Simulated assay, not measured.
Amino acid sequence: MSASEVGAEAIAARLSALGLIPRIERHTRYTSIEAEVPELFPPESWREVLHVVAKADRFGLFASSLSGRTLWALVHKAVPATGNVRGPGHQR
C-alpha cells in the first residue's frame, strides 16, 4: 500500500473513531474520503475533525438544506520521482 493510501485509510479510521461513517473512493490521481455529518454532531468533536482532515491535501464541508452536511477530504497519489515524466504539451 502506498503512503497516500495509508494516509487516506488513517483519515478514514480517525473519522470513524469520532462516530462518522467514512466512504473511501480511489481515483487515478487521488483518494477521496467522504462522511455525512449528522445534525446533532457534538460541537466539541469539530476541533478533532478539523485536525484529522488537515492531514489531507484538500478538504471541505458541503452543506445543503436538501442533503445535509458532507465532510470531504482528498489525498493526492504520489507523482513518479523520475526526470523522464512529461506532462501535456511536452515533446521529445
Results as ranks from 00 to 15, higher is better:
61 L>T: 08
9 E>Y: 03
1 M>S: 12
24 I>F: 02
11 I>Q: 09
29 R>C: 03
13 A>H: 11
8 A>D: 09
7 G>H: 07
58 R>D: 10
81 A>R: 15
4 S>W: 05
42 P>C: 00
44 E>T: 09
82 T>Y: 06
59 F>A: 15
67 S>F: 14
79 V>Y: 11
53 V>R: 00
56 A>C: 07
21 I>F: 02
7 G>L: 12
26 R>P: 01
25 E>C: 01
81 A>P: 06
86 R>V: 07
58 R>V: 07
14 R>T: 07
74 L>T: 06
82 T>Q: 10
4 S>M: 04
40 L>K: 02
37 V>G: 00
31 T>W: 02
21 I>K: 12
81 A>M: 06
18 L>F: 01
33 I>P: 01
81 A>Y: 03
89 G>K: 12
89 G>W: 13
85 V>S: 10
60 G>R: 09
62 F>Y: 11
30 Y>L: 10
28 T>L: 05
24 I>T: 11
41 F>K: 03
60 G>Q: 09
41 F>D: 02
45 S>N: 12
89 G>F: 13
26 R>G: 05
41 F>C: 01
17 A>F: 02
36 E>N: 07
89 G>I: 09
66 L>R: 15
22 P>R: 04
19 G>P: 09
44 E>Q: 07
48 E>A: 15
21 I>A: 10
69 R>A: 15
15 L>G: 10
92 R>C: 02
75 V>D: 07
47 R>D: 07
61 L>R: 14
10 A>D: 11
64 S>W: 10
35 A>Y: 05
21 I>N: 11
12 A>T: 06
58 R>S: 09
90 H>Q: 14
5 E>R: 13
73 A>Y: 08
53 V>M: 02
70 T>G: 03
23 R>M: 05
40 L>Y: 00
21 I>P: 00
49 V>G: 10
7 G>E: 13
46 W>G: 06
75 V>E: 11
89 G>D: 09
80 P>F: 07
74 L>I: 11
4 S>D: 12
66 L>V: 12
65 S>L: 13
14 R>N: 09
16 S>A: 07
7 G>P: 01
14 R>G: 06
87 G>V: 13
45 S>D: 10
42 P>K: 00
11 I>F: 07
84 N>R: 14
86 R>D: 01
15 L>V: 04
59 F>D: 12
31 T>S: 03
48 E>G: 02
74 L>C: 04
76 H>L: 14
68 G>P: 00
18 L>T: 08
20 L>F: 10
27 H>C: 03
12 A>N: 06
3 A>E: 14
27 H>Q: 09
10 A>K: 11
59 F>T: 08
4 S>I: 03
85 V>N: 04
91 Q>Y: 13
82 T>F: 04
79 V>C: 05
75 V>I: 13
75 V>P: 08
21 I>M: 05
43 P>K: 08
50 L>E: 09
44 E>P: 01
15 L>T: 05
75 V>L: 15
59 F>C: 12
77 K>N: 14
19 G>E: 06
20 L>S: 11
79 V>R: 12
74 L>G: 03
51 H>W: 06
78 A>Q: 14
9 E>A: 15
69 R>V: 14
69 R>Q: 15
50 L>M: 13
